[in-house]
Design a protein around this nucleic acid. Sequence first.
DNA 1: ACCCAGGGTCATA
DNA 2: TATGACCATGGG
Length: 215
Amino acid sequence: MGTADASEVLRRLGGAYGPMHWWPADSVFEVVVGAVLTQNTRWQNVERAIANLREAGRLDPDGILALPESELAALIRPSGYFNVKARRLASLVRFIRGSGGLETLAGWDTPRLRTALLEVHGIGPETADDILLYAFGRPVFVVDAYTRRLFARLGWFAERAPYEELRLHVEAELGADAGALNELHALIVEHGKRHCRPRPSCNGCALREICTVGG
DNA sequence: ACCCAGGGTCATA
DNA sequence: TATGACCATGGG
């Protein structure tokens, strides 16, 4: 213990759960939409909201921008915070369109794209990094609540350590390997749902031997 | 009847 | 800079 690193966590969780095939979406734009809708929200609820958008024929930039925010909010209702998220979604899509579309943004370098995303209202570090990694395939690590909790329980960082510390630590360790960073975040979420919850359920945990919790 | 979920903004001290 | 309030649906 104490010698475990991100690569070992990746190996252990990958062995336990297999390939995650993230992000669960049919298009790049759907990843972008999902990244906003899943803020502090179960993915199951997000799927309903996305299904509503699809059935309404609104799962594209023009379809969303042509909608009054009140109607957009009604469609994404199941994902929670629907008024807040309608505004955030509209802001993000306006940014995408105003920049020339997803194809244009795909040509931007990662620091420029990350900075621009963070300037959009309602896009914080995790949502920006979701988009960078899972929509644009950039080698960035996504830090979420499960990651914080896990890294704290592994004894790596304090619970409240700054977002950038965790992100840069993992990126330095795994290198600019988008596939590995993709898989690690997805596995941490899957593991978080099953074991690394606020009240840990350590029975059958694949990280038992390197974790400070659960003895 | 609680607690929690693949966050982020804003007001306040 | 660091807390706390707020946003809201749906599952366990």
